[in-house]
Design a protein around this nucleic acid. Structure first.
Length: 355
DNA sequence: AATTCGGGGCA
DNA sequence: TGCCCAGAATT
């Protein structure tokens, strides 16, 4: 056991990945990185992590930030709730303790922190001897004992193994091993520092473990969408505070079959009335069609283009106008990216410059 | 226990 | 195209 720890830590010192959040480790940096890394690849996170820490270098800075600033830095990362939870956790920790607590139990009570994040911040950020079990660690341990481990069992085993001298490095070593050697589909057992004690390797079952979980098929739903060109640019709609892409800006539309009442294909006159749009007239129907697949749902987006002769200021927002320049700089979820591109390159027939 | 939350990379 | 990834909240 002791030798196993020494060998894995030696491997980590030698072959561990050089990642931005490992350069100058801090509890706050660990918190930000771990929030971003939930279900998200290292390669996607790295540039955003650097930008985020540049914008909010400290917990106090983040706690004082406006929600939109935080959300903007999350563009393209997905799981946008994380941005809200991270912000809320920062404010709460700052308000209650003037900093992050090092106690896993207290961390666990902060919004958005579950068993993994609480343990990761405590061990990596503060050096507390607790085991952080993510998907990588669970897979590594499942193979090590060649037994299907649920999250609970994995945590218990991991707690027994954790190196009390270097808990943060130990946890990260297991994760690096899972990410670079003990791969989900094609494990490189020949390069594994734990090869000699791994039961799955000995039995040749490594690639079978953990058992693949079955996934439900993604449900497809039409998503009629409008692009309205007005005197002040193009019309944007802020999405509801809960649910898919919560709180983000996008192009007005409703998912057919969703919670919200789906207007008839042509019935955007109600929108026009509500916004005080005058002289709304269709310019081009089905100007753009594409499919965007989320983790559990697929939008079949159909874009109709309208022009509004004039409009009052759409206040208070769930709506706003965006000039071409603003549109180009605005954080927008990927689901709307084809529309933005079409507007900016003028292929919607109603050039952005025309406004 | 199952579902809801994005997006990207790779076989 | 299907599968998975430094998960957690909600129901």
């Amino acid at each position: 056991m002791k030798r196993l720890r020494a060998e894995l830590l030696a491997w980590y010192d030698r072959s561990g990945r050089d990642l931005p959040w490992r350069r100058a480790p801090s509890p706050y940096g660990t918190l930000v990185a771990e929030f971003m890394l939930q279900q998200t690849r290292v390669a996607s996170v790295a540039p955003r992590y650097l930008a985020f820490l540049r914008a909010f270098p400290t917990l106090k800075a983040l706690a004082a930030a406006r929600p939109d600033e935080v959300l903007a830095l999350w563009e393209g990362l997905g799981y946008y709730r994380r941005a809200t939870y991270l912000h809320a956790a920062a404010r709460e920790a700052e308000a209650r303790w003037g900093g992050l607590p090092d106690d896993p139990a207290q961390l666990l009570r902060l919004p958005g922190l579950g068993p993994y994040l609480a343990a990761a911040v405590a061990s990596i950020g503060f050096g507390r001897p607790v085991a952080a079990v993510d998907g990588n660690v669970r897979r590594v341990l499942s193979r090590l004992v060649d037994r299907e481990l649920g999250p609970r069992e994995a945590r218990r085993l991991a707690a027994r193994l954790v190196d009390r001298g270097r808990p943060g490095d130990w946890n990260q070593a297991l994760m690096d091993l899972g990410a670079t050697v003990c791969l989900p589909r094609r494990p490189r057992c020949g390069a594994c520092p734990l090869g000699r004690v791994c039961r799955a390797r000995r039995r040749g079952t490594a690639s079978l473990r953990p058992a693949p979980r079955r996934r439900r098929p993604v449900r497809a739903a039409p998503r009629p969408t409008v692009v309205v060109f007005g005197p002040r640019g193009v019309l944007l709609e802020r999405r509801p505070p809960k649910g898919l892409l919560a709180g983000l800006w996008g192009f007005p539309g409703r998912e057919r079959g969703g919670d919200e009442a789906a207007p008839e294909a042509d019935d955007w006159t109600e929108l026009a009335r509500a916004l005080g749009l005058v002289g709304l007239r269709p310019v081009r129907r089905r100007a753009l069609e594409y499919r965007h697949t989320f983790s559990h749902r697929a939008w079949e987006v159909v874009v109709d283009v309208y022009r509004a002769a004039c409009a009052r200021e759409p206040e208070p927002a769930p709506y706003r106008w965006a000039s071409p320049a603003e549109l180009g700089a605005l954080p927008l979820p990927r689901a709307f990216e084809p529309i933005r591109q079409a507007i900016l390159d003028g292929s919607l027939g109603c050039g952005a410059g025309a406004t």
